[in-house]
Amino acid sequence: MFKIVHYINQFYAGIGGEEQAGIAPSMQGGAIGPGAAFNTAFADAAEITHTIVCGDSFFAENTEAATKQILEMVAEIKPDVFIAGPAFNAGRYGIACGGVAKAVTEKLEIPVLTGMFNENPGAEMYCDSLYIVATKASGAGMRDAVGKMSKLALKLARGEKIGASIEEGYLPGRARVNFFEEKRGSRRAVEMLLAKMAGKPFVTEFPMPAFDRVAPVAAISDITKAKIAMVTSGGIVPKGNPDRIESSSASKYGEYDLSGVNDLTEATYETAHGGYDPVYANKDSDRVLPLDILREFEQAGRIGGLHNKFYTTVGNGTAVKDSAEYGREIAEKLLADGVDAVVLTST
């Protein structure tokens, strides 16, 4: 029976949500949380013998130290395969899964795999060096993810040849793998064209790389004459969240007036964000949206002025296309209001 070590975050370990995201790595015997489903899927072929749990914020803020600790734990067990996640569309968790898995395979030469939604920032960072099984965006896709990941894990454990991404269900990005298609190229191309003309779904065999980069805009020459606006993905809203911006997968952004506001206090502002521990932002929202400082700088003439509105949304599993849309609309409004530069904060 193959021995597997599984890496999960505090949430899937059942320890807690964001208030526990700061916990340091620890290892326990047996399977925890999604590990049980993996063990069922493995039947008698493999078993998760140990689970390493680490808080997402701890990993993000202490990456080097956490990685070192986790490597020591894995080295002690010497598993046949190391599995991280799946992380779905959880950004910090995805980056942790990718970072840990990469370190394990590079330093300990143990086969690894993880699972993520394709928009997870960890996917783009690690898809060229790891097997990242493509999952749905949320934990609702756990069963599907475990099915695909357990199959690939067994193949890795047995040292079998791993096929192309389209065959195995992992995100493309690694070295190409050749395979024979049943239909020849001309037939596949014509079928795709017909599907496209009929408005039916089709899958290209050669997606164009999306190099979506924006050239930097010229610097502000004199900040003491510039009107600065604040935007945040950290979910800061007036107390009570009047527009009910969702705590995750936000379907909107808010625009709020700052006239006469010099400080964001516990009584007047809070965060709507469900992806980080809200205690600190609820106590003092200036920790996410630095209004107090920019107001002081404005009064001291160190900036030309502070725009009297701020824009906010919750960047927590929010779709890229929605965020881009909010960004476009916000930019249009800022330009119309004569704003010269933007300070955008993220949690």
Partner: peptide, 18 residues
């Protein structure tokens, strides 16, 4: 959002931990 704001022609600075 950062990218779309910059694309619209506004200089933007992103303050973030990760």
């Amino acid at each position: 959002m950062v990218k779309e704001i910059e694309r619209a022609g506004l200089p933007v600075v992103h303050i973030c931990t990760i």
